[in-house]
Structure formats: C-alpha cells, structure tokens
Computed example of a mutant assay.
Amino acid sequence: MAQIAKQTLDKICLFTLNCRLFHGNRKLSSADLQSALNVTIDVDKTKQVMALGVKRVFDKAELAKLGAVKGAMQRACSSIGAPFLGGFAIPDHKAQDLAKELNVLVTRGLSLKADLMARYPQILDKFAKQNPRWEAIIKGNAFDIAYVDAQIQFDWDGVRISAGDEGGLMAKGLESKVGGLLGNLLNDIAKASSKLLDESLKNRDGVTRKAFRPLLAMADKLDGFNFVDPRVGALASMIRHVLSVMPPEGRIEGADLRNLYGLTSILSSPDQALVIGTKVTESDVAMVYDEAFGQPYKAVAPKALAVPAPSQPFPKAPGLFEATPGFEQPRGPAFQPVAYTPPPAANFFNF
C-alpha cells in the first residue's frame, strides 16, 4: 500500500451507524380495497404490469420521532465526515467528540423506543379508531409487539482501519477507496452548497449573515481533512477569506451578494472547487480572491468570524491526485442589484 494511503488511514476513524426503524406498513391487497372502500380491482397476479402499494397499520407521527433521531445521527457524522466504506471517515481529532454526541442520541432513541413499546397497544387502538373504514384491517394486520421491539435499533461503531495484507488484494482494494476519499468529500460539499443555493441564495436581492453559517461549517469540515490533500485546507481558507471581507453588519447585497453566490456556485461543482484549492496552494489566498472575485471590500476580517487571510501561501500539494488544469480570468457581467439567478448550466466564473 502506498505510503500516502497509510498516512491517511492513520488519521481517520471509520464510523458506521447501526440504526433500524419500524415502518408500520403492510402490503395492500385487493381484498383490503373491497372491504374498506367497496372497490374491486383485478390485480395482475404476476406483478408484471401492476401491483398495489402498502397500507399503514401504525401511526406515522409516532414513528417520525424515531426517524428524527436516526437523521440526527446521520447529520452528526456527515457534518464532519465524508462517505467511506459504507460509513463515514472521521478525522481522528474529532472522533471522541462525535462518539459522545452519538451516545447522547442513542440514549434518546432508546428512550423513545421504550416509551413507544409501553404505549404500543393504545397507539394502535387509537390509530384504528381514527380510520373507521380501515379499523378492522388495521387491527387484523397489526404487527406483534415483540417483532416491533426487535426491529427498532440505535447503535454505532467506530473503528480504525488496516488493510491486513501488505501489497495484497485487500491492500490494493483499500488503497483505491482511500484514493476516492477526496472526491467523496468534495461531492458532500457540493451537495451542501447546492442546497444553500436553492434554499437561501437564489432569487434574492439580499441575505443576512445567517447565510454564512453553512459555509463556515463547510470550511470546518474541509479543514478536518487537510491531511488528505493540502488543496482541501486551501479551499477552506478561501471560504473564510471571502466571508471575512464581507461587511461586518447589515444585509449582504450588491457585489457582496454576487461574491457569496459565486463562492457557493464554485463549491457546488467539485471540479471548480478543486481549481480554486489548487490556485491557492500555488499562490496566495488574497491573490486568488482578487483574480476570481474582483476587487476585495477591505482586507479586514469581522470580529464575528476572526478568520484573517493566511500570511503565507500553502505548500504545493503532493497528493493522491493530479493537479487540476488552469484557471481563467472571470469574464462574467457586472452584478445588478436585483435578484440573481443564473441558468442551471452556467459556469459562474467562466473556467
């Protein structure tokens, strides 16, 4: 196994979530429709053309509480980790804090499960009575409480990873997975950036500084994986630099909004994000900012961010990956103080 892959494995833990939920569904049959709605349907018995869906035999609202805990566990891992080997690669220095957070969530999930099990018969009876046409079907198709108890599970594992055989098939397979870690990380950043664009930045003529929070979280996540490739840390520095030269108070509008939109657009494309990271490692974050975003506001970071630009350029990345090709001077039109929505396929800075 290549030395750089070994060094990467030495700095991460693999976290996997072992969560299962009770769905509360049964297969819907034509007899159900006949009994509840007096509707006759000739279903294709081979299921080649048509099959009926499912019927809910337990209150969805009660189960949503369990789903919320599972979602919180996934977000806790995703916020600092990258998809890896069916779980999440977590930087070693963040593993203990994550373990504590997951334990709190597991305790919460098991408490909700215990409460659900204690009230299971009452919840089932209430749900059936709320749906009188389906009451007999719901009660007749109810799941045994022991089955439900066995289905619901909240747990997690955190382990270190070793190839097990130097130079063998296992080592080669694991090395290829480590080589894909950078791509997984940037794809995660791209998803979060696309969500930020869609939910907070598109069709806006101004935003508050709350829009900075997801970007700062992305920078923290990228910083945690600087050991994978220095361009990752360089990209984090660019995010902080763009935010640091924004006005320290008031709404973000005009050219500042354009730069915020531009930064988020870059991050939504792994290729473009890596271009910026490469440029910063080869020169200086302030210089790349000028090149990509135009003239800065003021090179003074607001106290709320406390993220001054680095005084020295990052070292050139040795990395697992080849350097990304060049970067062109932006040639986009000047920002107008109206809601800004580029076409879906737009290359924001023409590179």
Rank of each mutant, 00 (worst) to 15 (best):
Q3N: 05
K6S: 08
L9F: 05
L9C: 01
I12D: 00
L14Y: 01
F15D: 02
R20S: 02
L21S: 04
F22L: 05
R26D: 10
R26S: 10
S29H: 14
A36Q: 14
D44T: 13
Q48S: 14
L52R: 15
G53Q: 11
G53R: 12
L66E: 04
G67Q: 05
A68N: 07
G71V: 01
A72R: 10
L85G: 05
I90Y: 07
Q96H: 09
N103C: 03
N103K: 12
V106L: 06
L112Y: 14
M117V: 07
A118E: 12
R133L: 13
Q151N: 07
Q153D: 02
D155E: 01
I161Y: 00
A163W: 04
G167P: 01
G183Y: 03
L186N: 00
R204C: 08
T208P: 10
R209W: 06
A211S: 15
A211Q: 10
L216G: 03
K221L: 03
D223G: 02
F225P: 03
D229N: 02
P230Q: 09
V232W: 04
S237D: 13
S237Q: 14
S237G: 14
M238F: 11
V245M: 15
V245P: 12
P247E: 09
I252D: 00
G254Q: 10
T264D: 01
S269F: 02
V275M: 01
T278V: 00
Y289N: 08
D290H: 15
A299L: 12
V307D: 15
P308T: 05
A309L: 13
G319M: 02
P333A: 13
A334E: 15
F335A: 10
Y340N: 06
F348K: 02
